[in-house]
């Protein structure tokens, strides 16, 4: 079980309210990602759920039981920290065994569970090493091992991949997703990387300045962003925003169009412009186009598209993929 409910939770540091009243429902077995720019309060929110910070007002319920004032260890949650927080003076085996030892399990059970975890995470050969002798990816696995042996009702991840290099990050992303598929345990994952959020989450919670901007599945957020912030934050490359006459023609203050929803032609189209930078990725081509009166727009074309800096191109947006926003930045449906 791992259903977590936040009811009107707030957090204040000194006189600064970092989390205004916030409601959130996390279902059992869900993979939930908190995403937002740095300083948006996503880590604080995670630490409130973990019990590492006290909530200022409001209530947290885990599986229906009030947990607001329960000690972190008693909430039945396990956490993987950004710095991994491995105990440097203990071997890998002892690190993974530590929560079990604290729970007072018999030695034989501990041995068995540690061995199983090590097998799952490919750590069997490293059990006697110290954290200092491991690579970043291996340390990450040990931290996850320490979390899974406890069989928690939910896993909390605090930007776990931010200290890994790009290639390893993609691997670990898959491993964590696989782990979620096999364990089917609730996972709450904090990241500032919207790609991680999009690829891993069942449900994404977009946070900005402590407020929840939108909650939904990755494709919900992609297809129907509730406001300008979510529209700009989800999706890569970023959505183009256009104001002025073009927007007014659509009865909106701002219209947004994603780069992949703009058709590019060298002959004719709605908006004329000059290519300032062309990024040829092979699988697709990103064009940064200086238009005549709409500023710089980004467009994405599948496969190769042979234009260069200075080439003249025409852009045509897919009208049905346009997003419209009112003066307050909210989407017009």
């Amino acid at each position: 079980m791992g259903e977590i409910v936040l009811d009107q939770v707030t957090k204040t540091f000194g006189h600064v309210q970092v989390i205004p009243p916030l409601d959130l429902q996390i279902e059992d077995g869900e993979f939930v990602v908190f995403v937002g720019p740095s300083g948006c309060g996503k880590s604080t929110l995670l630490r409130l759920i973990a019990g590492l910070e006290d909530v200022t007002t409001g209530e947290i319920r885990i599986d229906g039981e009030p947990a607001t004032h329960t000690a972190p260890a008693k909430r039945g949650l396990a956490m993987v920290f950004q710095s991994y927080a491995l105990y440097p003076h203990m071997s890998v085996k002892k690190n993974i065994a530590f929560p079990l030892k604290m729970a007072g399990l018999p030695q034989s059970v501990i041995e068995e569970k540690v061995e199983n975890a090590a097998k799952v995470l490919n750590l069997t050969d490293y059990l006697d090493r110290r954290p200092g002798q491991l690579s970043g990816g291996q340390r990450q696995r040990v931290a996850i091992g320490r979390a899974i042996v406890r069989e928690p009702s939910a896993f909390l991840f605090d930007e776990p991949l931010s200290n890994l290099d790009a290639a390893l990050r993609v691997n670990m992303r898959l491993e964590i997703s696989e782990l979620h598929n096999s364990l089917k345990t609730t996972m709450i994952y904090v990241t500032h990387d919207q790609v991680e959020a999009m690829t891993m989450a069942d449900k994404i919670v977009v946070l900005n300045a402590g407020r929840v901007e939108q909650v939904g599945s990755p494709l919900d957020l992609y297809n129907a962003p509730r406001n300008l912030f979510v529209a700009g934050f989800i999706g890569s490359p970023k959505m183009n925003f256009i104001e002025g006459e073009t927007a007014e023609a659509h009865r909106a203050t701002t219209v947004g169009i994603r780069p992949e929803h703009i058709a590019v032609s060298t002959d004719a189209g709605s908006w004329a412009g000059v290519v300032s930078v062309a990024e040829h990725l092979g699988s697709d081509t990103l064009l940064h186009v200086q238009t005549e009166n709409l500023g710089t727009l980004t467009a994405r074309v599948d496969g190769e598209f042979s234009v260069r800096h200075g080439s003249r191109v025409f852009l045509t947006p897919q009208e049905d993929k346009m997003h419209r926003f009112d003066a307050r930045g909210l989407a017009i449906r």
């Binding site: 973990a50 590492l52 000690a71 972190p72 260890a73 008693k74 949650l77 396990a78 956490m79 920290f81 950004q82 710095s83 927080a85 491995l86 105990y87 003076h89 203990m90 530590f98 929560p99 604290m102 729970a103 320490r146 406890r150």
Partner: peptide, 23 residues
């Protein structure tokens, strides 16, 4: 974070002192 990890792992004040902090 290490102290927090110990607390999440269920170490009380005594265990935290004995197994994590002191070493």
């Amino acid at each position: 974070e290490i102290l927090e990890a110990a607390r999440m792992d269920g170490a009380g004040l005594k265990a935290e002192l004995l197994y994590v902090l002191t070493p």
